[in-house]
Every structure is written in C-alpha cells, then in structure tokens.
Design a binder for these strands. Sequence first.
DNA 1: TATTGTTATACTCTATAACTATA
DNA 2: TATAGTTATAGAGTATAACAATA
Lengths: 170, 170
Amino acid sequence: MVTTAQTSFKRPTRRNKPAVNALPNVSAVDQVDTRYLQTLLGYNARRAALTIIEGFLERMAEFGLRPVDFSVMSVIHHNPGVTSRQLCSALNLLPPNLVGLIQSLEARGLIERHPHPTDGRAMGLHPTAQGVNLMVQAEQAAADLEIERSARLTAAQRKTLLELLQKIYL
Amino acid sequence: MVTTAQTSFKRPTRRNKPAVNALPNVSAVDQVDTRYLQTLLGYNARRAALTIIEGFLERMAEFGLRPVDFSVMSVIHHNPGVTSRQLCSALNLLPPNLVGLIQSLEARGLIERHPHPTDGRAMGLHPTAQGVNLMVQAEQAAADLEIERSARLTAAQRKTLLELLQKIYL
DNA sequence: TATTGTTATACTCTATAACTATA
DNA sequence: TATAGTTATAGAGTATAACAATA
C-alpha cells in the first residue's frame, strides 16, 4: 500500500498532488503575513474604527453612552428640535432602531420630545439642561480621547486623515 | 402655583427656564449640522468603513464571501498552514466565532484542515486548488473595487490614508 | 498549568414588514 | 399617495463560560 501510518485525520495523498502547492500538509506558519489585507481600504478602515471605538466604549461608560448614543445626543445637542427622521438620515440609522434609543434617552431625562412646529407627524427632539450638561462633559472627554488616540499622528496628519475619510463616505 | 396650562406632553415651563435655550419647544431644524461629529476619528472611520463594506458585500456576493470570509480566506491563501489561533490573533477574531466559519469554508471545498506538523492540538489550514482559484479572482475583484471606491482620491492620497489608518490600529 | 479547538449560549446590533396618524 | 413614528420580529454579529485533548 502507498499509505503509511495515519492519524484519525484525513491526510492528503501527497504523491498524487504534486502540482501547485508542494507539501501543503506539513508546512507551518511562524509569523502571519497580512500585507495583502493591509492594501485594502475597507480592512484598514474597519480595523481602525474598531480600535478607536473600543477605547471610546471604555471612556464613555461613565456617561452611560455607547457610540450611537453619543452620536444621537451630540446631534440633538447641536440641533435642538431635530426629528427622528433627520437623525436617521444624518447618522445612517434605521427608524425602528432609533425608537428604543430615543425612549431610553428620554427616560433618563437627557432629552424631551415636543410636537414639531409645522409637521404634526413629527416630534422635535430637544436636550434638557441635564442633557446639555452631560454632552458638554462627554464631548470634552471625546476630545481628550481623540488626542490620546492620535498620539502617533501629528495634528496635520490627523486633519488629513479626517478629510480623506470624509471623501470616502460623504 | 407656578405651572400653567399644559398639553398631554410635558411642556417645559418656559417662563421658569429663560436661561440657555429660549423657546426649545417650537424651533425646527432645516439642515442637520454634523460638523462636531466630523471632527472625531471614530465617527469618520466607522462611517467610511461601513460605506466601503457596503460595496464590498455587493461585489463579493458572487463569490459567496462576506468581508470576514474574505479576510480569513485571504490570510489562509497567503499563509498556507496557518492555524485558527493565528487567524484569530491576526484578524482580531474570537475562536468560537471562527469555528463555524472554518467548517463552512471546508464544506465548500475551499480549504482543508491538516494536522499541524509540530503541535498536536492545532490544525493547519490550507487552501484547496479551488480555494486558490477563488481567491485569485476575489482578490482581483477587491483590487478593482478599491480603485472605484477611491476614485475621489489620488493614488498618493490613498497610500497616505492606508498608512494613517494603520498608525491607529497597528 | 497553559493553550488549541470546540460547544453552548447569551447578548447586541442590524434589517424587514406592517401598522397609525398625518401631510 | 407619501411620510414620520412605531411595533414586532428575524437575522447577523459578537461575547463569555466551560470542556476535552495536547503542550
């Protein structure tokens, strides 16, 4: 017989597949080469975003704000009276996923919903004094985190990075 | 009492809070201002990543590869014999979430699992000829997509963007 | 004792269809 | 008829704990 001592795992018949990859079954990898993936914008943008958000989660825990909460509160903070629909468009969220979030922020006393002045279907979202106070602190913390996170970038590089990223999604 | 006629919605007692935001209940927003969020790396990186991945999903559907499948197959393609543990470290994945993915790729005949030459606990992951063929096509499609997606960037800008993103997460 | 791969499972996030009230 | 907000729900993605086999 051709085959020799085998484990319970299927071992490829090395002699019958000499073509492309010689010895595919015994090679090992000491250091993983990810250089190809590093040439792709999507891979790098995703890895960078997840790294930044990881730190953001920790820092914003004291304010009880996830990234999406922070984004929504920030837009309401800077756009009092904005509607849910406008929030969805601006932040690329889906309406059903915003409902519970808004209810939660309202229950925490961070925002209030008032009838829209001209559209009876819509509700204007307004930050409360407590919400404004929270966001002033949270946005300061976010600014501090930005500086830490981009410690390996110069101010000019950081500005360039923001501009280039916006060219991608705006 | 201080409070006056109220609707069923809690209306702020305007007379008692003349301080910061006058008339918070009747203002409307015509255009949403997201300039503050646009100063944050995390926000921009996440928005850019999601935009790129959206196009990636469509383009890779013909190969049956989600982004994570593509990443895993690409690393196996360029690192035959890599282990699951190495994949997790390189791509920041969790072992339990890789199991089903690997099984799926193996069931599709794109990879084969062979005993590791030196570590009896580990399994070396190798691309099959079919897997190599698929990834040659998929990586070409990804390269094409890169060019389209970065149409608004010069080649130098694209290179700069990759380098700056890697400074964030590497 | 530590690590690889695995199972089970829970939790979060995201997406779709359908309904109401109003424009 | 179209839109804003909502409900219910399904699906995908991500997380932790615990186990067997091996280092």
